[in-house]
Amino acid sequence: MTIKALIFCKISHKSMLEVLNKLKEIPEIKKLFSLTGDYDICAEIEVIEINELYNSFVKKIDLIEGIINTNTHVVMKEFVK
């Protein structure tokens, strides 16, 4: 059972492409959305356990220069039609 989380990121000026490229290199990130609004990027991440989410965030995402601020949401349930 995988855990899905959405990491909303605010990016500093002129760093968008660089940040996107670095996020693409992280295997746990399955999709990247470029957004308009309060956040610039949303990264959809899938991990096996919550510890892996912590490791991916602390050891990979948090180290990327250009990310000013993040807001992580864990998906509890997905409803579709």
Binding site: K4, L6, N71, T72, H73, V74, V75, M76, K77, E78, F79, V80, K81
Partner: peptide, 23 residues
């Protein structure tokens, strides 16, 4: 979530843990 899913244009509703409840 079920009420939202019935609306035209809403493809998927995700229930979240974080500062927001639904995406």
């Amino acid at each position: 979530p079920i009420k939202l899913l019935k609306l035209d244009g809403v493809c998927c509703v995700q229930s979240l843990i974080g500062t927001y409840d639904l995406l």
